[in-house]
Nucleic acid binder design. Structure first.
Lengths: 168, 168
DNA sequence: CAGTATCCTGTCCGATACTG
DNA sequence: CAGTATCGGACAGGATACTG
């Protein structure tokens, strides 16, 4: 949520994302949900989160369309919170955070890794351009802003604020 | 920082990352710093952040080793905050958030994109395994935890809490 | 089991004013 | 220009008790 803060009204897609997952509990909840923990008590125990807080965060994630509240038992009424397609799509962000944490904040070595279950080989996560396969860390890649930055002409490098001081 | 919260003491690399970049201001500051805005007033104007808050966040980012406070003028004393190698390495997370935001929270279309400056072509960011080039969204890839998850044997899928209820 | 209700503390964060 | 000092409000988040 973080709707009360100055995150609101920004155009930058990063800021837009942060409006929904800018609170760290939400990220940890999504991590668990994507790992298969979808029930209230699983999440609560696994995360060590206070129930009231969990309720609140789950509601926000459902509202944001990242989780779906689904009935899995009629009597008694029981719900589970499963990732939507949008929630699934958040996986890349999680993996990026995972790789970053492993590289820089894991003195005793990686505690969680991404593994190919067929080969058993540990993956080495990198962001690339899907079309060319080239890593986006290549300095040739830049962030470009402007109206409909999707067009291939008339784009402007983000080496200065978009509109003369305007916020992204 | 977020050091006072229950983020502390977790082993999960995602949680570890969040300890340092879990606050959304930090992420936006890194975004700007990586885009070339390294001076206090650039950041302040560009972000619309209160000066005291900016000071605090910059200090945290420097302490976390993501930014380096560097003297660029002697008289008067002036500092700039440039991304360290570790800060550079955060780029993938930013790009993941950017792509996610563009895909799901940009009703009017992408406002910022990653572009190959040589070809002018807009990149399509995906997380892949560097070795094989395969997208990590492939269901064959799973998150694995355990002591030194880097080893290729004796790993356990994270389909249950690591140590019987223990937090990640 | 899956929450709701309530209280309390810390601090995020904005606003404003001031300094070399 | 690059910050520091201070104030106040809003809420994140923990703890605990209670309900069907």
């Amino acid at each position: 949520m973080v709707a009360h803060t100055s995150l609101e009204g920004r155009e930058c897609p990063i800021a837009r994302s942060l409006q929904h997952v800018g609170e760290w509990w939400n990220i940890l909840i999504l991590r668990d949900a994507l790992a298969g923990f979808t029930r209230f008590d699983e999440l609560q125990r696994n995360l060590g989160i206070a129930p009231a807080m969990l309720t609140k965060r789950l509601r926000a994630l459902v509202e944001a369309g990242l989780l779906e509240k689904r009935l899995y038992s009629d009597r008694p009424q029981r719900f589970e919170y499963v990732p939507t397609a949008r929630g699934e799509d958040f996986r890349d962000v999680l993996v990026a955070l995972l790789a970053f944490g492993n590289r820089h904040f894991a003195p005793e070595g990686p505690s969680v890794t991404v593994v190919d279950t067929r080969t058993g080989i540990v993956a080495d996560p990198v962001m690339v351009d899907a079309a060319s396969g080239r890593p986006l860390s290549d300095p040739a890649f830049r962030w470009v802003s402007g109206p409909m930055a999707g067009s291939q002409t008339r784009s402007r490098y983000v080496m200065g604020p978009p509109e003369g001081g305007q916020r992204w």
